[in-house]
Design a protein around this nucleic acid. Structure first.
Lengths: 138, 138
DNA sequence: CTTTATTCCTTGCAATATGCAACCTACAAT
DNA sequence: ATTGTAGGTTGCATATTGCAAGGAATAAAG
């Protein structure tokens, strides 16, 4: 929210401004990796985000250029959140975080086969997931 | 802080519990990539963390197995924070986040040469940075 | 041995952010 | 005309953060 307009920004600091809170990465995970697109899908994720927080994060993500908000023409009640390339380019970050967590959390839900695919050819998995997400945009 | 002891944890959710706040990744950056080791180095990072937050995060990082707190024998006032392998294994995450930020933040401070090295051979850079950090532990 | 300095914090309090429940608006379906 | 659904907003209690001040332990200086 706080715009630091200084030159020479530390990249970690910039990233934290964009997704350095408890919820943004989870929303991104749902949008990019679980194929969710609508408010009602996101509100049902098992971590239990509050309605006001979800709304406020989606708005911030729009401002930060991660999602584009669009209404469905055939039912104007429904809102779809499309991912930008900037957001899709966070897939490698999500996967690398997942690799780390899977290594150190003994209760990890990651299927071993998926971890193995990532270890053997990260780029291949990244491409696949990004392409799958792009297909869902329209 | 809140320990979810459930089986089948989402890896992103686990990571967020460990470093999903505004400061932990910055502390990790300073410890792992900038060679800082002591409280007084960390308090001087340009983002300006408050003393109470720094102390509380260092304690949480110790509980989470990221750092080991040790006093210098020759001056028992001084505390050193040594990184665990679990923390060093976050170097790839830090670099991937850095790669993303450098791509999308027009004010990024990342030297282009460094980004190029990362793009050309990520593993080589990771190894170098981890080895440099390990050498500083003793 | 008394005083001063350094290091690593802790405490108190105001400001901010979060979480929860209730409510609301626009549109669609009946 | 009424009821339902999608995507929120609002109010308020609680939790977290940020700021300024202070304090304990050790070390250095006189």
């Amino acid at each position: 929210m706080t715009e630091k307009s200084s030159e020479n920004r530390c990249p970690i600091d910039y990233a934290l401004e964009v997704f350095g809170d408890r919820w943004t990465l989870l929303i991104l995970r749902d949008l990019a990796l679980s194929g969710k697109r609508q408010y009602r899908d996101l509100i049902n994720s098992k971590e239990g985000i509050a309605t006001n927080i979800l709304a406020s994060r989606l708005r911030k993500m729009e401002v930060d250029g991660l999602v584009i908000r669009q209404r469905k023409p055939e039912d104007k009640r429904q809102v779809f959140y499309a991912l930008t390339e900037k957001a899709l380019d966070l897939v490698p970050v999500l996967l690398e975080i997942g690799r780390w967590s899977t290594t150190y959390d003994e209760n990890s839900a990651t299927p071993p086969a998926l971890l193995q695919r990532y270890t053997e050819d990260p780029q291949q998995l990244i491409n696949e997931l990004q392409e799958a997400a792009r297909l869902k945009q329209r």
